[in-house]
Simulated assay, not measured.
Amino acid sequence: MIGVVVEGIGEIETVRAYISKIDQSLKIFGRPLYADLQPKANPKVIVAAARNVINQLRRRGATKVVVIIDLEDRPCPVRFASELKEAFCSAHPDLLITPVVKHHCLENWMIGDPDALRKMQKRFNKFESIENAIKRGGADMVKDPLKLLDSCAIKTSFHKTMDPPRIAAHQDIDKLSISSRSFKKFLCEIGHSPCLSKKDKN
């Protein structure tokens, strides 16, 4: 079984929505667990903060744990992921733990499939601005996706807890994986083969 750990309470239902779109034959716990991870902290501090939920997943039979965390303002996602993996392996040598570093934050994933936002026309508009932003290098390269989502939100500002699960429910995870390398990494780590059409998978 694969367990998933997230750093934000608002990410629980969002990632749960993504998992619900995965092939149900894959053995994944449907509900991610929350841990109070601080992306700017030392990797050993992050590992310590995740200890309780990782042990909980171990008791439930997890053989692999995927930990999703923001890059924030760190310079290199690959280096950060490598440092985290080393720290997790040292603390839990008997369990496979893989960090997935969101580049830069959950909101980058939220803009990766503009068609999902088009399905929410009572909540968002100005879809072309999002399409233009991700054309230049993909969703991961947008430096301030929250500001971009705010500019497209109708009536009230983008809500970091309420809006992401609603957007995720409409997103095509294969399209999103093309726009976001960090999301593609997440899909690969939980066993989904991204970027393949249903015809290709059969």
Rank of each mutant, 00 (worst) to 15 (best):
Y18P: 00
D163G: 03
L95R: 02
S157Y: 10
L149F: 07
A153F: 06
R136N: 11
P39N: 04
R181F: 03
D174W: 06
F127C: 10
V45P: 03
S182P: 05
A81P: 07
D36S: 15
C105P: 02
I12A: 07
C152K: 09
S177F: 02
F127M: 11
P75D: 13
L148Q: 05
P164F: 02
F29N: 04
Q38K: 15
D36M: 11
F158C: 08
A169R: 09
A48F: 06
F88H: 01
G61S: 08
N52G: 09
V142S: 02
R59N: 14
A41R: 09
G191R: 05
I46L: 05
P43Y: 07
I46G: 02
I111T: 04
C76A: 14
A17W: 06
V47N: 03
Y34P: 03
A81Q: 03
T98I: 15
D23V: 08
S180L: 02
R59F: 12
N132L: 14
N125Y: 14
V45L: 12
D140Y: 02
M110L: 10
A139E: 04
I68V: 15
S197C: 10
P39Q: 00
P194N: 10
K119D: 13
P77Q: 08
K175M: 06
F158A: 03
G10K: 08
F158P: 01
I190V: 15
K198Y: 11
G191T: 01
S20V: 02
I12G: 01
R58H: 07
L149T: 06
V53H: 02
L26P: 06
R74M: 09
V67T: 08
P114M: 07
K155V: 13
I134A: 05
N125G: 14
E107K: 05
R60L: 15
G191E: 01
A116P: 06
K126C: 11
I46K: 00
Q24S: 14
P77F: 02
A169D: 04
G61A: 11
K44P: 00
M110A: 09
I69F: 06
L96D: 11
S129F: 13
H159K: 14
L176P: 06
S151M: 05
R16Q: 11
G8H: 03
I2W: 01
L84P: 00
D73H: 13
R136D: 08
I97V: 12
T63A: 12
N52M: 10
N52R: 11
A81V: 02
M110Q: 09
K102R: 15
I54D: 00
E86W: 01
C152W: 09
C76K: 13
K198N: 11
Y34T: 06
R60A: 15
I54C: 04
K44R: 14
G137L: 09
P43G: 12
L96E: 15
R16H: 08
F80T: 04
A62E: 07
A133D: 09
H104T: 11
L106I: 14
H192G: 00
G112D: 01
L187P: 01
L187C: 05
P93T: 13
R31E: 14
P93D: 12
N52E: 15
L146Y: 10
N125M: 12
Q24M: 09
L187F: 07
R74Y: 10
P93G: 11
H92Y: 15
K201I: 15
I2M: 04
I68N: 01
L37R: 03
S82K: 08
E107Y: 07
R79H: 10
K119W: 08
A133M: 07
E86Q: 14
K122R: 14
C105R: 11
